[in-house]
Design a protein around this nucleic acid. Structure first.
Lengths: 226, 226
DNA sequence: GGAGTATGCGTAAAGAGTACGCAAACGGCT
DNA sequence: AGCCGTTTGCGTACTCTTTACGCATACTCC
């Protein structure tokens, strides 16, 4: 229910936090920032910030991400809203968490924008430092959602460059799912789905050349992949 | 990101809205309230209200539901957070939507508590009146989530009385999924999962008596049902 | 006692998932 | 040039799950 004017009395504050994922060196990484101010100064956390009046939640997440890390215009999806009163010692902050996915994280050396953060860095999800607030739980929830959606959507396209080989696609799935897949069954399944488009060219390397593929549609779709 | 003191400047307000579902007459119903005040006075909407300082979101949802409709202590799950600036003409309200499930809705004749609502009623999801705010979208999203979760969890137990027949269980699934299921395959699948406990008693009716069952565990579990 | 209907049990075919053998194509090395 | 190790690419056999459907049983109602 809604429909109340803004109060002057104390009320919970609305913020967004973003868990940006990418795959580096066959490992799932998340983007962390080092806080410069506040009760958790010096600790690592997820990028985020307050939602402004008359700003949508999606817009707030995109704006904070671009302003504070220089990462533009990537796939963003709302994850969950965390609102326990004790999650922030400075007051009651209700945080709408987002999951973001980006291809080839190495190509975007993230940089701090403004003086809000002392540093920005990709960190492997398996070996995280102690995080501020309840952000450890946020990352865990986000990684679980990512694993689940990868199995029944084509979201893989957000994590790969435009052209890739089936081997690279499989590596990415194995990195996120955390388990090995049979190479031949993976190939059969993925090709049978018709999501890919053979480019007719090959990538040459130290071994047999591999055919290059691209996603037929680079937009979110619901399809049983695994 | 969090860590800011409460402001005195304008900021979005946090509220909760709850979509309570039940199955009545083989049809999925949702609980609606008739608003007495505000820009949508006279229109139907989902029950809900402001989140108080130092109150968790789950607690706020449970409190509003109990206070305004008399429905106590049922299954509650956070659904999605709606925060478009234009969704409430009175100001920027960020609403955390919840899905709630209750068995045998007929047994809880919901009653308005306080003067906030003029009426409270179960309405079939397929034939809703024009709803206030963006609540039509909330109900649609909630129903979709319910359908999805029913297929891979044991949430069915929240929608049935403690004792039931396999026919009643199947009727409930068909009402929510909106399609017919083969009676014999449904029986095999459900019994093979081992979620049910045969009570050894039967329900007598106009036809052949049906064995009574109960859920072995009445708590949320993730299991592939359909 | 027969008709009508829901319950309870079983089998056969089709489809999806899993395990795995093997040839082809490359770079690097001798 | 020829062999080795590695990755790519294709195909087959087996298992498990899903789907379709036949049929007897047990009750009420007429």
């Amino acid at each position: 229910m809604t429909g109340f004017p803004a109060p002057v009395v104390a009320a919970p504050i609305v913020a967004v936090d973003i868990a940006v994922f990418t795959v580096l060196a066959r490992t799932l990484h998340v983007l962390l920032v080092e806080l410069r101010h506040g009760p958790f100064a010096g600790r690592w956390a997820l990028p985020g910030g307050r939602v402004q009046v008359d700003e949508s939640l999606d817009a707030a997440a995109g704006r904070e991400l671009a302003a504070q890390t220089g990462i533009p215009n990537i796939y963003l999806e709302q994850l969950y809203t965390f609102g326990s009163p004790g999650r922030d010692p400075a007051g009651h902050v209700v945080s709408v968490a987002y999951v973001a996915l980006i291809a080839h994280g190495g190509r975007f050396p993230p940089r701090p924008g403004g003086d809000k953060y002392a540093a920005v860095a990709w960190r492997p999800v398996r070996r995280l430092p102690a995080l501020a607030y309840d952000h450890a739980a946020v990352v865990a929830t986000a990684a679980e959602r990512l694993r689940a959606k990868l199995a029944y959507t084509n979201l893989a396209y957000t994590l790969l460059p435009r052209e890739f080989t089936l081997g690279e696609l499989q590596e990415m799935y194995e990195a996120i799912l955390g388990r090995r897949l049979d190479r031949r069954n993976f190939r059969k399944k993925v090709l049978a789905l018709g999501l890919l488009h053979a480019l007719g060219r090959v990538r040459r390397g130290p071994h047999r050349p591999a055919a290059l593929y691209a996603f037929r549609h680079r937009r979110p779709m619901v399809i049983q992949v695994l």
